[in-house]
Design a protein around this nucleic acid. Structure first.
Lengths: 210, 210
DNA sequence: ACTTGTGAAATCGTTCACAGCG
DNA sequence: CGCTGTGAACGATTTCACAAGT
């Protein structure tokens, strides 16, 4: 009973996703137990790191045995909050927004995009990837109806600030920000920036080095 | 002249992208100089961090003045390797692959998707977002012709390993991996995992906490 | 004999703070 | 006098290493 109720370091939470994804795969393969060693090895991490990360949340293993895959999957989902499905809204049905609406991978991991929002008459009223595109003015009503707490923001830079305020007013408390701009956020809201071009830049840097 | 020729920490390179994006924006606004302080502030970082990060690569500022925006943009592009356009291939024209092909944002940052590859007859021969989808067997020829070094991998888990080997054989040395699986990579190749669902999980964790 | 959980040590990254330049 | 560049101090994260459980 060590480090409960500390703030959890961000790198730990990132790895939790990694563990969950891998354990889910192992469960589907019919694997019933894993050691921190084998789990770590398959993810290019160390066994001590796996144990320490899990140790932030409880004692899930058995000395001499390892971890039971099924129960650990459930535990990680509970910790990450994906033991229930989160309704998500997407704001900004431009190139990237429409691209994300066509992506089907969120569902399997516990997130359902229930509606998209934009202001352009050309997209409002359409249905993209099975998701209806509504006018932004419908956001508060719809967010309230579904109890939406998370949003994907994919608007141009200059619209990001206003959109973020509308999201906050509608009760959204977590934003995945694809807009290429930093955003000051209220204390009760979490913003995670994602920049796909930046990911390629990281590769470009490392590949260019040698 | 301190720390040249050290290995550069990954967080530093990530912030380089951030600096470049912001400086490019400032340049377009007609701003000609910035201090580490003002740049840091707009990105929620500290001035010391900005100076130290740039210090890995040289001395670009002037005491008492700050940094000249235009020259620093050029310098950062050179450092990140995006002073020239990188041709990129995409492998896997499923949901996510097609979504990424429709995204137009890579171009502006120095990356051009020149072709996509798949094995499914249903997509091979099509043109998605202005990019032709070819059979994977055309990969070596096309990669050689364009001198492609970077790839975006968006195939299902079970195809990832084989695809990675084909990419390596075709001369690709950097892979942006959207497949939800860890991949062992040869020493001469860099793999960067991207998992959009995991990004939402990080939000879900933080929002669920309070 | 194997494997967990965890303090202690080591490593890595950030922030401080100031000498020196423009 | 403002601001950079950078050692030194600090803080965070990872790895080590081992006592204890099965």
């Amino acid at each position: 009973m060590p480090n409960r109720n500390q703030p959890i370091p961000a790198p730990v939470v990132r790895r939790l996703s990694l563990y969950l994804r891998r354990l889910d795969y192992l469960a589907n393969q019919g694997v019933e137990k894993v050691s921190s060693r084998s789990l770590a090895e398959s993810l290019s991490l160390t066994d001590a790191q796996v144990r320490k990360d899990l140790g932030y949340f409880g004692q899930f293993g058995r000395a001499g045995v390892g971890y039971l895959v099924g129960p650990l999957v459930e535990e990680l989902k509970r910790i990450l909050g994906t033991d229930k499905v989160w309704p998500v809204v997407l704001v900004g049905a431009g190139d990237l927004g429409r691209a994300l609406l066509r992506y089907k991978g969120f569902r399997r991991r516990g997130f359902e995009v229930v509606a998209a929002f934009d202001v352009a008459a050309a997209v409002v009223g359409r249905n993209i990837g099975g998701v209806p595109v509504l006018h932004i003015r419908e956001l508060p009503k719809l967010a309230a109806r579904h109890g939406v707490k998370l949003a994907i923001l994919a608007v141009p830079t200059e619209a990001a600030q206003v959109a973020a305020e509308q999201l906050h007013a509608a009760g959204i408390r977590g934003i995945l920000n694809f807009a290429p701009t930093a955003m000051p956020s209220p204390a009760d809201t979490v913003v995670r920036p994602v920049d796909l071009a930046s990911e390629l830049e990281q590769l470009s840097f490392r590949v260019g080095q040698k």
